[in-house]
Design a protein around this nucleic acid. Sequence first.
DNA 1: TAAGTTGTTATACAGTCGTACAATAAAAAG
DNA 2: CTTTTTATTGTACGACTGTATAACAACTTA
Lengths: 215, 215
Amino acid sequence: MEELYTQSARTGARLSPEERRSALINATLRCIIKEGHAGLSVRKVCQEAGVSAGLLTHHFTGKEELIIEAYRFLTKDIYSRINQSLAQVSEPSALKKLRLFIDVSFRRPVLDKDYLMVWLVFWGLSKQKPAIAVLRNEVNDTVISTLEKLMTATVSELSLEAVNVRLAATGLSALMDGLWLEWSLNSTNFSPDEAAKICQCWVDAFVANALQRLN
Amino acid sequence: MEELYTQSARTGARLSPEERRSALINATLRCIIKEGHAGLSVRKVCQEAGVSAGLLTHHFTGKEELIIEAYRFLTKDIYSRINQSLAQVSEPSALKKLRLFIDVSFRRPVLDKDYLMVWLVFWGLSKQKPAIAVLRNEVNDTVISTLEKLMTATVSELSLEAVNVRLAATGLSALMDGLWLEWSLNSTNFSPDEAAKICQCWVDAFVANALQRLN
DNA sequence: TAAGTTGTTATACAGTCGTACAATAAAAAG
DNA sequence: CTTTTTATTGTACGACTGTATAACAACTTA
């Protein structure tokens, strides 16, 4: 399995600001993966990037900006992984797209244990750093809206009974997050395939008009 | 709303080892609630407990033990909160017990935003400190087993079709965790009551034999 | 080649970190 | 009361924190 956020081959070389900023951001994520919140120190990140500690303030205003930029990169990275996986298949039916979205989410490279520490650390910072909380909420709203649209289209396609699709999508999102979290913390209780099946059951219930309580 | 883990009235007094250990553990949780992982320093915890920093090593072998004991206390505390809420009602039917468990979990004092930081910090430590991971897995298995028993009893009561109850319980647990997490991170998208309703839908689907995919 | 620009290093600074340890104060035991 | 025990304090230690800054080195432009 390919490692997340490997450092570029050239070390010690003089890089352009964009390249160096990117290298430091990747090193930040690698440090969090290795040591959690404890790995989030300027010296450790710079050493991981093969660079002197003082260089950080030359490319970032400080540690704060580095962290926020690392989070911004992470969200974009995962978002692109999901879209890349989805683009491999062209499914006209909204229902099939929905089911594909679930399956893709519980397979690499979207599913990866290394993400656990990263998300936990950033979520833990979101209370003290509002910028992170704002970013997280935006991404989350995007995901739920995506699910909601697919489910609304499914209602039309299959002529289902009216239901609060927003809450149904919220439930599916929470179910996926909960299973992802539990599997990341302890992968011995169920497999990714089983997790995907559990989520598909929520869709089954949705299609079978079994979520009428959400009204 | 009552605050979690308030310090006892007597400060500056000479306490028994058990009392002092308890006070330090409570101060630890309060520090995490206030500042997240950054609040988890010996000096901050001892100041929060109104005590000199050197006292910690007199009652604990070090920071490590304090953290693990704080986690142990936290799990017991929440477990007792759940049981206390459940004990208020005597429901003979397993299905009603199951539904009650859900409702109780999305009401105070089980549902409390202050728990978010605490869990995130401890989960973030679980990779580096195996003792925490072991404890978490034990508690999680207990919860899922509780759900599984209630659901198995429901199958008998209602003569439902055979289904993989373990996976159905895993799904319910994940759904509850995911909704708890999302609500704790951003409580503007849905209410605790709606979260409970979403979970009850999973039970509805279970009762309606809509989870047959789990076989 | 010379001058100017800028990516990079190394050092210094004032804090904070966890913890060991001697001094102190208060309770318990005699 | 005196003696013993022990909860508590204050300090000291080396290591680490984030960042500012001067010196250095590499690239660009003239």
